[in-house]
Design a binder for these strands. Structure first.
Lengths: 334, 334
DNA sequence: CCCCCCGATTAAAACGTAACAATCACAAAG
DNA sequence: CTTTGTGATTGTTACGTTTTAATCGGGGGG
């Protein structure tokens, strides 16, 4: 019940609190004999440093905040895995915030990060407003954008080229002999959705097709359920194109199920391509052609940039990194 | 850069720091007129409470720690969603730790929790050793077990009956006319795996079958990849039973893909049942029969118990809650 | 033998907030 | 006019750590 403090350790080991602090933070400053004695006292008493006191005094903590759009999407859990690995290698803890695509929840998470005085924030912003992020930077909290390109050069950002990815997807569908094309997407405010659409249109233009032919179906969520609803809708309306590009794999998997349930064969009747190449894409029975992103790397690199910025504010050079996606062809496309 | 403190707000609003603190923590104690004035000054100056200072002074924080075994498993993201919803309703933030099944990582996460002086910890323990948890309790940190029954009555725990679940699964396979039966599982140290196996054996005994007939295939991980490997192994060895019970849906989905790739028809040749009923279970083309758990509820209830224990240490009565699972029959079983 | 220096250690002063007792203003009761 | 009560506000102290400057104890050079 009574928590043991640095003073208790000091008293027990016969040294001053300052020395215990040194053992904890700059072991090289203290003589080996005392260091060993203090360390064993720490274990003996079960002392655990009071992170808050430490943060208060030091002015910053050993934590970073990670704010993602949908923790239920394997894409983001993979990113989070990369973040966590790098962070824990460097002695940082990760506070994970899930915005669920809601601006309000995102703001609440950022407030928590600010209260906790996290060292830095990794964020996949749910909209384009940079105001909140500048506010954080004004508080001395570094911010790195994840899966989002930087509009400006005074910040770090790690992204994957979604225009290229969209273009690759649709080019592949056209190569397969697609006649009519559809793009199944999420809320249009999401940048990823916009960019992938832009890429899709470019690919159509490059193939001498009229971009406006691309039938857009925007769903309110980017989940498997939404994908299945989209399938039912297209079939009921009789507007089913013979090639479909879904803005992520969850939508595509739902679409796949909806199509098959209605007796539509994939890929014979309809070609289907997803985005992200999540694990389940290859595990679905008609395995899903998809656009792979270096997801785990995205998290790793973003975190490395963030911690570099935190630890070397003087020499740090902002970087805007843009990865390229890969097309992974499987069974769901002709 | 310069952080604005409670004193700055006080000076600007013409009150004492104590009053600002009251506005923040006990608004009812302060006159409406001053409260409004202080609140607007807070907004004007962009003041954000220093969580660490607050925690240091108050002796505890407004955060809870959540330690899960595999954040890549949708089961746990669903649990996490329940946790987060309740926590944020009550003004708590969640620090998420992923143990990846590694005891060392789990310990590191718990250390972070202890350093952060979280108010309480929700944990799906990766093994049966209660030592670390008692240590936390010794520090005044409440602990609630999630998806794990309590061995003792001096703690809260929320679980789902895995013995019943395993039994339901195998009983269903037997009803479908299963001849030979297999159980595809993860590391045997995981309690969930053990309990589901026990249930499976009970169901066999109840049907007059010899429990030892159950072919156990233990994989080192509970992922789709591992499931597919298990399929390849069983097929290569020629020991494929005609009914398979997988310890979770990820294994089952991998198994499904492995079987279909090898030309084994599901459910005609092999009946397949998973566990957890994750979203992807119903989205896979041969939709997966599975054992559904009230996953989101698990997270919600556990968090409610935890916060009750934290906030009313006097009147709190420990509870051990055991939910019952449901069988969800789909296409993958006869 | 004195002085200086060096490494090791310590004392003391913050960091920003919460909580408690003390004070204040003021109105109602006597 | 004094007392009492009440609600609002303030002053002060402590939380546990880090950090800086100060101190200590010797060893070596002069």
């Amino acid at each position: 019940m009574t928590t043991v403090s640095i003073k208790d350790v000091a008293a027990r080991a016969g040294v001053s609190p300052g020395t215990v602090s040194n053992v904890l933070n700059r072991p090289e400053k203290v003589a080996d004999s005392t260091r060993i004695r203090v360390e064993s006292t720490i274990r003996e008493l079960g002392f655990v440093r009071h992170g808050s006191a430490s943060t208060l005094r030091a002015g910053h903590s050993r934590t970073v905040g990670l704010s993602v759009i949908d923790i239920g999407n394997p894409f983001f859990t993979d990113v989070a895995a990369g973040v966590e690995d790098v962070a824990s290698e460097r002695g940082y803890a990760v506070i994970l915030g899930n915005s669920s695509g809601s601006r309000m929840k995102e703001e609440r998470n950022l407030l928590v990060f600010a209260e906790q005085r996290v060292r830095g924030v990794l964020i996949t912003p749910s909209d384009e407003d940079p105001g909140r992020l500048d506010q954080l930077r004004g508080r001395g909290i570094c911010v790195v954008l994840v899966d989002h390109p930087a509009e400006r050069s005074d910040q770090c950002a790690v992204a994957v080229n979604d225009v290229t990815g969209g273009s690759m997807a649709v080019a592949h569908l056209l190569e397969g002999g697609a006649g009519s094309l559809g793009y199944v997407t999420g809320p249009p405010v999401i940048r990823q959705c916009q960019d992938r659409k832009r890429g899709a249109e470019q690919a159509m233009a490059a193939a001498g097709r009229e971009p406006r032919e691309l039938l857009e179906v925007a769903m309110p969520a980017m989940t498997a359920k939404a994908g299945q609803q989209a399938a039912e809708m297209l079939i009921a309306e009789g507007t089913l194109p013979d090639a479909l590009f879904c803005a992520n794999d969850l939508l595509a998997l739902g679409m796949l199920r909806g199509l098959l349930q209605a007796g539509v064969r994939v890929p014979q009747d309809v070609s289907l391509i997803g985005y992200d190449d999540i694990d389940f894409a290859s595990a679905s029975t008609v395995s899903l052609t998809s656009v792979r992103q270096p997801t785990y790397q995205l998290g790793r690199v973003a975190t490395e940039l963030l911690l570099d910025e935190c630890d070397n504010p003087g020499t740090h050079a902002h970087q805007q990194i843009m990865f390229q996606p890969d097309l992974v062809v499987r069974e769901s496309t002709r």
